[in-house]
Amino acid sequence: MEVRTIKVFTTVDNINLHTQVVDMSMTYGQQFGPTYLDGADVTKIKPHNSHEGKTFYVLPNDDTLRVEAFEYYHTTDPSFLGRYMSALNHTKKWKYPQVNGLTSIKWADNNCYLATALLTLQQIELKFNPPALQDAYYRARAGEAANFCALILAYCNKTVGELGDVRETMSYLFQHANLDSCKRVLNVVCKTCGQQQTTLKGVEAVMYMGTLSYEQFKKGVQIPCTCGKQATKYLVQQESPFVMMSAPPAQYELKHGTFTCASEYTGNYQCGHYKHITSKETLYCIDGALLTKSSEYKGPITDVFYKENSYTTTIK
């Protein structure tokens, strides 16, 4: 009895394709271990004539594949690729409408935090270190965002349907971005203890939790000093293409032309909904596939993004 075979390709990165001759009487799992086709788990399936010449994702289970996976995804987590594939199996079914010149995501599976993050990423200057993220990001900007969303979920250790947080998501993504040249110098002034300067680099240099107003941050924000008295913390120097200011959701007025974009969060910790506000020729609110415009805006804002380049204080 002759062994019926077909020729397929296996890959971990969709760049390096490895030619395989597979036995049609055995499952993919018996031949390769966990195997995925377009995100779908085909591990328990036997090869079919229609699979001839198709590319299958496999887990990096030998040295060659491990090197290829690390170079593309910059992670050695053995569960990463499987999590990416199972997320992709959902995100490829989502709709990605162009809204006001940006790629958004039609609401499904509690994905409003991903839509808000995706919209924000198209408006701030950011370059990702893992080629996987950078490639998928370019495709997302062009309207094909399924891979990018699935990668975000995998890097953030999230599953489809789980509630997510924009600030946490951005923080994970910033860790995989090139923020080497970003720098922030802060000064804390206390009447009792004097003053202390701190220099922050990388992710810490672009994120701040405690106030939404970048102007206020430049002037000074009140913080408790270690001595128990009130101290003032203010920005001395900022070198970065953008800054992200966050605070627990509270009524906040966004003035046209003073910011790049913002995240609105309605609801409580267990259950809520994100919308995205962007400042173009007027203010726009993007909620999944829905767009509304207004000249002014007041609502429960939790993150505001500002364009920056270089700032030095005039406070002496």
Results as ranks from 00 to 15, higher is better:
T5I: 09
F9C: 10
T11C: 03
D13H: 06
D13M: 00
D13P: 00
V21T: 14
D23I: 13
F32C: 09
Y36M: 08
G39D: 11
V42C: 14
T43I: 04
H48P: 12
N49L: 13
N49E: 12
N49R: 13
H51N: 08
G53F: 11
T55C: 13
L59A: 15
N61K: 12
N61T: 13
D63F: 07
L65H: 08
R66A: 13
F70W: 12
Y72H: 14
T76W: 07
P78W: 10
F80D: 03
L81N: 14
Y84C: 04
S86N: 15
T91K: 07
K92W: 07
W94M: 00
Y96D: 03
Y96T: 05
T103A: 08
I105L: 09
K106S: 13
K106L: 11
W107Y: 05
A115F: 04
A117Q: 05
A117H: 03
L119K: 02
Q123T: 06
I124H: 02
P131K: 12
Q134I: 04
D135Y: 07
A142V: 13
A145R: 04
Y155V: 02
T159P: 05
G161S: 03
E162Y: 06
G164N: 05
D165K: 06
V166T: 07
S171I: 11
F174P: 07
Q175D: 09
C182I: 02
K183G: 07
R184P: 02
V185W: 03
N187A: 11
C190A: 01
C190P: 04
K191R: 10
K191V: 11
C193L: 02
Q197M: 12
T198W: 10
L200G: 06
V203G: 06
A205H: 01
S213Q: 02
Y214S: 03
E215S: 08
K218L: 03
K219L: 11
Q222S: 13
Q222I: 08
C225A: 02
C225P: 01
A231D: 01
T232Q: 07
Y234H: 04
V236L: 08
V236H: 05
Q238S: 04
Q238P: 01
Q238D: 01
P241S: 07
F242I: 00
M245A: 00
A247Y: 02
P249F: 10
Q251S: 10
G267T: 00
Q270E: 15
C271I: 11
S279C: 14
E281P: 02
E281Y: 00
L283Y: 01
L283F: 07
Y284N: 05
G288H: 00
L290Q: 14
T292S: 12
T292L: 04
E296H: 15
Y297Q: 00
K298F: 15
G299E: 07
T302D: 00
S310Q: 13
S310Y: 12
T312D: 01
T312P: 07
T313I: 13
